[in-house]
Amino acid sequence: MNTIAPNRIDIQKLESYWICYQDFKKELSKASKDEMKSLYFKNLQTLVEAIEQLYETFDEELRTIINMRYWDKSTACHEWIDVADALYMSVQRVLRKRNYIINCLANHIGYIRI
């Protein structure tokens, strides 16, 4: 199967899944059994499980990028140059790793560009 590289909009959407992961988990924990049967919550559960599974399979470097860029609100690493500087990498290298993270999530959840 041929895969198409995500465009800027796809990347923003897929990154938002990583950013909102904690909120998704909270939402799932508050959902009732009836709500969990809805398509929305089933998709949310699939997304949360995919993120958790991928995070576990990633090496320490990729986990650090995810933590710094998406999950750790206390750090000042909200820009890619800050992440690159903190990890002693070029911005291009960090962005290639970001693309790998995004592509893994897209493939894992069956993301389809519309």
Rank of each mutant, 00 (worst) to 15 (best):
I4V: 14
A5G: 00
A5R: 09
I9Q: 12
I9N: 09
I11S: 10
Q12I: 07
L14N: 08
Y17M: 05
C20D: 15
C20R: 13
Y21T: 00
D23T: 10
D23K: 14
F24G: 03
F24D: 15
K25F: 08
K26C: 03
E27W: 06
E27L: 13
K30S: 10
A31P: 04
A31Y: 04
A31N: 04
K33W: 02
K33E: 12
D34G: 05
E35S: 08
E35F: 07
E35T: 07
M36E: 10
M36H: 07
M36F: 06
K37I: 09
K37W: 07
K37R: 15
K37E: 15
S38K: 15
L39K: 15
Y40S: 11
Y40C: 06
F41G: 00
K42G: 07
N43I: 06
N43G: 13
N43R: 14
L44Y: 01
L44R: 10
T46K: 15
E49C: 10
E49S: 15
A50Y: 06
I51D: 01
Q53C: 05
Y55K: 14
T57D: 12
D59N: 15
E60A: 05
E60W: 09
L62C: 09
L62S: 14
T64F: 01
I66H: 02
N67M: 09
N67D: 12
W71S: 00
W71N: 01
D72F: 04
K73E: 13
K73C: 05
T75Y: 03
A76C: 06
A76M: 07
C77Y: 14
E79C: 07
E79A: 13
W80F: 12
I81F: 08
V83A: 02
V83P: 09
A84W: 08
D85E: 13
D85M: 11
L87T: 05
L87M: 15
Y88E: 13
M89F: 11
M89W: 05
V91N: 05
Q92G: 10
Q92D: 11
V94M: 04
V94W: 08
R98E: 01
R98L: 03
N99D: 11
Y100A: 03
I101T: 04
I101Y: 08
I102T: 07
N103W: 03
C104G: 00
C104R: 12
A106M: 04
H108A: 13
H108L: 10
H108T: 14
G110C: 06
G110T: 06
Y111L: 02
